[in-house]
Design a protein around this nucleic acid. Structure first.
Lengths: 218, 218
DNA sequence: TAGATTGTTAATCGATTAACAATC
DNA sequence: TAGATTGTTAATCGATTAACAATC
């Protein structure tokens, strides 16, 4: 039963399955059951089956999933085979760290340009990618549309940039700023990294747990 | 009705409320209603009231929430007033980017040490923080426990390190590696950044949406 | 065939939203 | 007092888990 939309919660688990399948294939494992995959990923077997079944029928009753097949099916669902193009807006430390370390190419994503306001980098290249001034972004998006934008600018700049990216028909924004982007319906899909929220969710859980332990074992 | 545990979903929204309250205070706003806060954060008003009420009663019927009071209450709940200490394990680009840019100090977190295996940085300082060899980690944790670890090492190193951190009684791990950490019950709480999953969740949504638009308006 | 494991339906659980008495 | 908005309870919604017939 292939559904027309993957549930939001499933979408967040599929990359985790993919990561594990890559590992399994490297080890030479040919088949894996939902039960076994569940042990490694910390997800219930029935949840995995449900997540996978809404994208199509990849499994084989009695034998489980073919690792190679499932991996390549997930690669398609995750958009790795679409040849997506992306730009990096903001060539600060985070932008540079991503350009240097994140294996975009390996997963089918081509970084076509970097944008910044700093005249010391504009006109040069970073890791082989040409750097343009942010002022040129709107016009360049018109001429050469891209699928994704990796946004690593200071929070003050997001209001204007979100508009430029929306008008420029960017389909997805990977947002590293700690601001909420003012996108409207039909605009780009935003995936927030929100490191601040992530760290303080952790601190909150640590504090919560430590508070409960008073009077208990510790 | 103050509950003894904050729901996992609420924990992930509290930092977002905090961020917005800081903005409001900067603007000089004294009071805010759940309805108004909802417009800015994209969360339903009743959801906000429920999230906040499980931490205590901060609001005032008829007037809303006092911005200053709510902000400082959230700071406490998020652990910002605990004077947490943290170490950075892995002094690569990501570790350095965080040390350079993330305002740990501003939110009550003190980075006490950095650990790496690279002899070129061991013994020096990074942004004023001393860098030690990872081999010294276990012993140093015994002598000087820390609350949090920011883990920015290659995935191969996580198995051993998770054990060292668990034995060393680290309470929380902010995990930047794309591996799942093998923590056991009672061990540190792990908050996964999982940039890979984040990017490909976005790509999956973009692909999903683009697929549905075929035959529609576009 | 017997054992294993799928895809799917039904039951449970938790999270979100709506409603409203209490109250500033 | 009248208007606004809280905290909380009840109703709804969606996501997770359990169960099992189908099937390799």
């Amino acid at each position: 039963l292939k559904k027309d939309t993957i549930s939001p919660m499933a979408v967040r688990r599929l990359p985790k399955y993919y990561r594990h399948l890559v590992k399994l294939q490297r080890k030479g494992v040919k088949h894996i059951s939902s039960a076994e995959l569940g042990v490694h990923t910390g997800v219930a077997a029935s949840q995995i089956r449900q997540d996978l079944s809404c994208c199509g029928e990849f499994g084989c009753p009695g034998r489980g999933y073919n690792v190679k097949v499932l991996q390549s099916e997930l690669a398609k669902i995750l958009g790795m085979t679409n040849g997506y193009t992306a730009i990096v807006v903001g060539a600060g430390r985070i932008g540079k760290a991503l350009l240097a370390h994140f294996p975009f190419k390996k997963y089918g994503i081509t970084i076509t340009a970097v944008y910044d306001v700093d005249q010391r980098v504009v006109g040069k290249t970073l890791f082989g990618i040409p750097v343009y001034h942010v002022d040129a972004l709107a016009k360049r998006l018109e001429e050469q549309p891209v699928n994704l934008c990796i946004l690593t600018v200071p929070a003050e700049a997001v209001y204007e940039l979100t508009e430029v990216l929306s008008i420029g028909k960017v389909q997805g924004i990977w947002n590293y700023t700690n601001a909420e982007l003012p996108v409207c319906d039909g605009g780009p899909i935003v995936e927030n990294v929100h490191l601040f929220d992530s760290l303080f969710s952790l601190c909150c859980m640590v504090t919560d747990k430590a508070g409960k332990n008073i009077g208990n074992e510790e």
